[in-house]
Design a protein around this nucleic acid. Structure first.
Lengths: 241, 241
DNA sequence: TAGTGGTCTAGACCACTGG
DNA sequence: CAGTGGTCTAGACCACTAC
């Protein structure tokens, strides 16, 4: 049953909350042992499995560390995980309360330069689709997108209308599953980038690169450039899970 | 028991792997229904709870979506979560194979300017500890750290020796639990930053800001600046959990 | 209102590991 | 080798919601 005995929360959530509270309030510090499954089960009046679930989830979230025989203890955090959500560009602009527009600046199918070919893990001489797009928010340049699409992985992209839908959105809808690698960097705007984004050459630009895979093939590689003065990635920290 | 029947994996992991495979290979596309708990339990010869665990974890990882009565289906991903791990600066430098050094450039306890006061959520007139540090990798400037510490939240910081240990590491060891907010941005180096980092004024700088909380109080707010040319944040995508 | 997911129990056996 | 965590089952009741 959805046990909502006391706080409208399932028993394992109540146990998790209780442990979190004791850690947050300093009663249990990093490295300190905390009660084991059996003890928790007894003190909360639940089965061991329920206590186990609470501890298992806390461990997955990085709050505690568990070892057989050794027991459970408060995790000693040596680093921090930042979870950044990067939504579709259309939603991002909409959430800023701005009107979104898309301009396709260039579209060509060609044999990519060596550097891009390596990123796409393409055979020599293989052609790929190159797109250059400008995303606008309230008619002002918001993001410059430089994208290569592996037509072997996504042949349908050759016929897609990227003046109507951003490639990122189109791909999300047409590629069933994907993993991605990201790089975030700061660069000085080169003259072409500056012209496209309507900023001065040399101005700081926030660069996000994304490489997406599907079935061990690189689907696409894209570089997004934002004017540094008007765009930042912000995150509320979320524990691992 | 740790059922390692076929692949050395627990049953719920085998079920998860099977579902992931079918999604990855396109057999089940975004939005498609997948077998329910009972059906999976029967076909894998496990109890419903084991099948439930597999589906629950996949849902938490964002792979599938579950709704009562409606059943389970492949998640329609509308965005991407990037998980960035930001390790301690000492470890980061060590992983680059470089020798780490720390230089404390300035240390003062003072009433912060209004902007900082707001970030620390401090009462007017309240003093805070301000630190300016330079982190070096192989004797070259790697990161400029501009940090404010709320002495009401961490009184012991007043006596800490930040010439020996980086404040980030010291805080991790002395503040039992924390949540954090992050901002990532690109800026042009101002003259002071350029001088400290040994770069030209105007060069792109990758800025990471972090605000850490404990018990609803802001513990510290810090701004880290890296020369854009020599530092990038990279991430392998990890599904949510 | 039927069917799916959500939670829970009591009992069980196994695996790992610190003393 | 004892104790802790890891997994599993069979059965149960409840909650939500699409039909």
């Amino acid at each position: 049953m959805d046990r909502q005995d006391r706080d409208g929360l399932p028993a394992y959530e109540r146990i998790k909350a209780e442990i979190r509270t004791r850690i947050r309030e300093g009663e249990w510090g990093p490295g300190d042992p905390i009660p084991g499954e059996s003890e928790l089960a007894a003190s909360f009046g639940v089965s061991r499995l329920t206590a186990h679930r609470a501890l298992r989830e806390l461990a997955r979230e990085g709050v505690i560390e568990r070892r057989r025989r050794r027991g459970s203890r408060v995790a000693v955090r040596t680093g921090r995980d930042i979870v950044l959500e990067i939504p579709r560009i259309e939603r991002l602009v909409a959430e800023l309360g701005a009107v979104y527009e898309l301009r396709l600046l260039a579209r060509r199918t060609l044999v990519p330069p060596a550097e891009i070919r390596a990123r796409l893990e393409l055979a020599a001489g293989e052609r790929a689709l190159h797109l250059l797009l400008l995303h606008l928010a309230d008619r002002r340049p918001f993001q410059l997108e430089d994208r290569w699409i592996n037509l072997l992985a996504v042949p349908a992209a050759a016929d897609a209308d990227f003046t109507a839908i951003a490639p990122g959105s189109w791909l999300l809808e047409h590629v069933p599953w994907s993993e991605a690698e990201h790089v975030i960097a700061a660069e000085n705007a080169d003259p072409a980038t500056a012209a496209a984004l309507g900023i001065r050459p040399g101005e700081a630009v926030l660069v996000i690169e994304r490489r997406t895979r599907n079935r061990n093939r690189v689907v696409t590689w894209a570089r997004f450039r934002h004017p540094g003065a008007s765009y930042r990635l912000a995150t509320a920290f979320a524990p691992r899970s």
